[in-house]
Amino acid sequence: MHKPLSGGAAARLARPRHDPLGERLAAIATPDRAEIEEIVRTVFSTLHGDLSAKDAKLLAEVEDLGRTIAAAKAEIAALRVDDITASHIPSATDELDAIVAHTAAATNSILEVCEMLDVAAGSATGAMAEQLNDATTRIYEACSFQDITGQRISKVVLTLKTIEGKVAQILAAFSDPVAAETPGAQSAPDAEAALLNGPQLPMVAMDQSEIDRLLASFE
């Protein structure tokens, strides 16, 4: 248990005190980058006389590496990477969304005309009716391209958003080491989410006959 302070002692403690050690510790805790670089350079310059040829070569390599990193940082800054997340990727995703909207509108127009042909086929007879029916069936089948392309474009949009996130992480890495270590907010994929991959490229996709064989293997 604490003893209560006398009135004089309490007044002394309440007064601001000059604390040179505390100030120096605080200064060390928040080092100035330029100051550290200057110190390192000074130490290196005094070491040259005592170094072996091997050490000097190693130091030269380290210096060279430092210059390369500085140059890379300057190049990244000059690239205006911010533009990628602020302008380029949003613009690309808008364009892709427009493609989906336009092809959907066109597909619906085609379907509308096809439905009119179907009605006309209803009043036709014989070979003519059969031909019209075959033609409209093929048009309906072909129109399903819209669904597949829409899903493929969604995958591209997702990829662009992933790139956007990675670029933001790179930017953070060059400006704030703590931010760079913080992973982006990602929801853990559950078992079913891992199964939702959309259309596969033709060279890796299973076709209907392979799926039929797989299903038959369960029977």
Partner: peptide
Amino acid sequence: TAESKAENVVAAKQAGVSNYIVKPFNAET
């Protein structure tokens, strides 16, 4: 569905699917 990986077909079968058609498909299928 457009999901054409074997693991999808297996998951659907295990859940009790009667049949599985991969997009794009045709009227005959």
